[in-house]
C-alpha cells in the first residue's frame, strides 16, 4: 500500500495560517476566497495552527493507522480507503452523533455549518497534492 502522508518540518512553520485559508477555500463550493466567505453553509477549514511552548504546529487528521474515529463511528460513515490509507467520512451516511469527536485524540474533527455532519481533512480528495502543502510559503509542509 503506497500511503502518502503530510509531514511537517517543525522549525519552518511561522504560524501564518496560510494553510487554514487554503483549506477553507478548497472545501467551499466556489473554491474562490472572496465568494467562499459569503457561502452558506460557510465552508469549514480542517486544519488549525496551534502554538505550543516553543513552536507552531498545523494540526489536521493524521489518517491514523489505527483510527479510533473509524472504530467508533456507529453509522458506518467512516471508512478507510484500502489503496491510499485515507480515512474518509461519507457525509451522506453521517448522522451527526459526534461519537468520532468524542474519540479523536487530537480533536481534529469539526461540525459543519449546518450542524448536521462531521467533517475533517480528506487530503484534498480531488487534488494530487493537498492545498495546505501547496499554500505553505516556507515549505514547512510536504507530502510524500
Amino acid at each position: 500500500m503506497s500511503m502518502k502522508k503530510i509531514y511537517l518540518n517543525l522549525h519552518k512553520c511561522l504560524g501564518c495560517k496560510s494553510c487554514e485559508i487554503a483549506c477553507g477555500v478548497e472545501h467551499s463550493s466556489s473554491k474562490e476566497l472572496f465568494s467562499a466567505i459569503n457561502e452558506f453553509p460557510l465552508p469549514i477549514k480542517r486544519v488549525s495552527v496551534f502554538s505550543t511552548v516553543s513552536h507552531c504546529i498545523p494540526v489536521r487528521c493524521l489518517h491514523c493507522e489505527d483510527a479510533l474515529c473509524l472504530f467508533a463511528c456507529k453509522s458506518g460513515a467512516i471508512s478507510k480507503d484500502e489503496s491510499t490509507g485515507r480515512i474518509i467520512i461519507d457525509s451522506e451516511k453521517c448522522i451527526g452523533c459526534w461519537t468520532c469527536i468524542m474519540v479523536c485524540p487530537i480533536g481534529t474533527i469539526y461540525i459543519d455549518e449546518t450542524g448536521k455532519t462531521a467533517v475533517k481533512c480528506d487530503l484534498c480528495a480531488e487534488k494530487e497534492i493537498p492545498v495546505c502543502v501547496l499554500s505553505c510559503p516556507t515549505s514547512a509542509l510536504f507530502y510524500k
Binding site: Y7, L10, T52, V53, I57, I106, T108
Partner: peptide
C-alpha cells in the same frame, strides 16, 4: 491541541517531526 501537545510531550521532544 497546542496545549495538549505541550502537556504530553516534553518541550525537547517537540523537535522531532512526528510530534502528532
Amino acid at each position: 491541541t497546542g496545549v495538549l501537545i505541550s502537556l504530553i510531550k516534553k518541550d525537547k521532544d517537540l523537535l522531532t517531526e512526528d510530534v502528532l
